[in-house]
């Protein structure tokens, strides 16, 4: 099947005083229509930057972007750099939406919630004025908020309530692809479940495609078809969700899975793989494998040669020298049961 979104060697660099932050540094990923790809990884590894670059939310002034993002035969990276980028990208803006990580920063404190949900509908002229209030009410209902809340301002909402406003706003324009940047982390577990169920329902109904960024690995496993694990600007493992969670192959993925907190107080002493060593900086990433200074299994080659993302079994990609040769590191038992 051909991909809905196809990313090739994407690089997003931020020029800063005394260097450049290589926030995303060579990411390639095909996302199929109707698929959910989970994106996980260390805080600061470039997940949000990847998501924002996909939607061309950076101006050339802020970030240098290279590589390709193919959507419906167009390269969005090229369009973003072209003259008249705003106009050229406009047809894609409706299709490609984002739910922001930070629901505080993304809402306008002076506008009512209702007006903010109506805004994209008006901008894309999707709903006649007389039906607007009903549409906004319907969207609020959809995300589990009361239609009466439309008249209120953001500061009157709790963190989780604001997050749902963000979801309602992204859904408003009937997009095809949504970057969900930590859409559930501010919600209680019951509403998390409700929102994930809702996302799955909408996906089935409208054939939506998601890039789902989150830190809660059990939730990511539940909602994703495949999971991509990022480390310092690059994808280090990409495979079916169950495979990544149950039998992680990359040493970083193994450390990540071993640190998943278990909702059971009697398991406090469970061993986790502690990552030793300095957390490297994207200003000056380590040579060779970027994980090598913290990796228990590092070999000589790891210090000098960058391991390519290699298909080690069908559909299963890992960027690690020994793993590519067929070596399998022992896996600690993944946290199986909760509650």
């Amino acid at each position: 099947m051909s991909a809905l979104v196809s990313i090739r060697d994407l690089r997003v660099h931020f020029p800063v005083k005394g260097g450049r932050v290589r926030a995303v540094d060579g990411v390639s990923l095909d996302i199929a229509p109707g698929e959910t790809v989970g994106l996980v990884g260390e805080s600061g590894c470039g997940k949000s930057t990847t998501g924002r670059a996909l939607l061309q939310l950076y101006t050339p002034k802020i970030a240098e972007i290279t590589g390709e993002i193919r959507y419906q035969g167009n390269d969005l990276v090229a369009l973003g750099k072209a003259r008249g980028a705003t106009v050229k990208l406009r047809p894609f803006r409706k299709d490609l939406q984002i739910i922001f990580q930070d629901p505080y920063a993304s809402l306008d404190p002076r506008m009512t919630i209702g007006a903010q949900i109506a805004e994209p509908l008006r901008y894309h002229a999707l709903v006649p004025k007389k039906d607007m209030a009903a549409k906004v009410a319907e969207l609020l209902e959809t995300v589990g908020l009361s239609p009466a809340m439309a008249a209120r301002y953001p500061h009157e909402f709790s963190g989780g309530q604001r997050q749902r406003v963000g979801i309602a706003r992204a859904l408003a324009v009937s997009p095809r692809f949504i970057v969900c940047d930590e859409p559930i982390s501010a919600l209680d577990v019951s509403i998390q479940a409700q929102v994930m169920n809702l996302m799955v329902e909408l996906q089935d109904k409208f054939h939506l495609t998601y890039l789902f960024i989150a830190h809660d690995l059990a939730a990511v496993k539940h909602i994703s078809d495949r999971i991509a694990v990022m480390y310092l600007g690059q994808i280090v493992e990409l495979a079916a969700a169950d495979a990544v969670y149950d039998t992680p192959l990359h040493p970083y993925t193994q450390a990540l899975i071993s640190a998943v907190p278990i909702p059971d107080p009697s398991q406090r002493t469970r061993s986790r793989i502690r990552l030793e060593g300095e957390i490297p900086s994207p200003l000056n990433p380590p040579s060779g494998c970027r994980f090598h200074p913290r990796c228990t299994y590092a070999e000589t080659a790891c210090k000098t040669t960058e391991p390519p993302l290699t298909e080690v079994s069908p559909g299963r990609f890992v960027a690690c020298h020994p793993v590519a040769r067929g070596v399998r590191f022992p896996i600690r038992e993944a946290p199986a049961s909760t509650a």
Binding site: L256, P261, R272
Partner: peptide
């Protein structure tokens, strides 16, 4: 107040 929700699980730990 939600000190680690924005963090990955290794840094959270």
């Amino acid at each position: 107040d939600e000190p680690t929700t924005a963090l990955d699980v290794t840094i959270q730990a």
